[in-house]
Structure formats: C-alpha cells, structure tokens
C-alpha cells in the first residue's frame, strides 16, 4: 500500500491528445475525500468527469473568447485541454460522487463506502 491510502495517482495518460495537468489538492477526512482541481477557462458544458472501474478521469476543454485574427505573442497555457486521471481506492463509493464547478475550480466530494466509515462501538454494561 502506498503512503496515500485513499487516492493514488496514475501516470497513465492516453497519448492521443496532449493535455495540461491541472494542479490539484486532495483532502481526506473520516467521511471521504475532497478533491479540488484548477481548471481555468473551462465552462461547465466542456467538463467531463468519468469513473470507469477504479479510475476517475477529469477532462476539460478551455473555451476562451478569442478575437478574430488574434496573434499570440506569449503563451503559458499552451494547450486548450486539461486531463488528469486518478486511481480511486476501493474504500471510496464512486457511485455517490458530487461535483461543483465554480469560477474555474472543480470541487469533487467522494464519500467512503459504508464499510469503510469509522464507527464507534457501543460498550454494553450488563
């Protein structure tokens, strides 16, 4: 098991289309994990979230209002696409993922499965 039990990163990225890797924060608490990803320039309808087996893929297309005939003189965001894949732990319940996209920041909440939730065991005194 790696140092990060809830989420491990995959380097496997499909090579067909080059994409930028969005900066991400991942926070784990007792109830699940929260993932924040910076996807500036991606509108809601151009964002794709996919869970396949245990892989979560975030993919977004940048849609900017570019004036006609614009010549780029300097570009730090050099590709119009973001993509990142994560391997989800089996502890997580991928069927109950909730997602919010707000001003270019994606917030994903993935709760832990019922069996992985912390439980307090009552002690009975007879």
């Amino acid at each position: 098991m790696s140092e990060n039990p809830a989420l491990t990163k995959t380097t496997e990225i499909s090579r067909d289309e080059a994409a930028l890797l969005p900066p991400t924060d991942v926070i784990e608490d007792a109830g699940g994990i929260t993932l924040y990803a910076d996807l500036p320039g991606v509108p809601k309808d151009k964002l794709t979230l996919q869970v396949e087996a245990d892989t979560l893929t975030i993919e977004g297309e940048v849609a900017l209002e570019l004036p006609e005939g614009m010549e780029s003189s300097h570009a730090e965001v050099s590709l119009p696409r973001y993509r990142r894949a994560f391997t989800l732990s089996r502890e997580l319940d991928s069927s109950r993922v909730s997602a919010e996209l707000n001003q270019g920041v994606l917030k994903l909440r993935i709760p832990k499965a019922e069996h992985a939730q912390p439980r307090r065991i009552e002690i009975r005194v007879d």
Binding site: D38, L39, P40, G41, L64, L66, P67, E68, G69, M70, E71, S72, S73, H74, A75, E76, V77, N102, Q103, G104, V105
Partner: peptide, 20 residues
C-alpha cells in the same frame, strides 16, 4: 496566474488564468 498574451491590429488581449 499563468498569462497568455496576444493581439490584433485593434487591441491587445491579456488572459490571466486565475481560478477561484
């Protein structure tokens, strides 16, 4: 924020990628 700079004959356009 990351910056992209471009221009046309009418204007200069600067894009700053500053989410959230």
């Amino acid at each position: 924020p990351a910056l992209n700079v471009g221009g046309t004959s009418q204007a200069v356009d600067i894009y700053a990628f500053a989410p959230g």
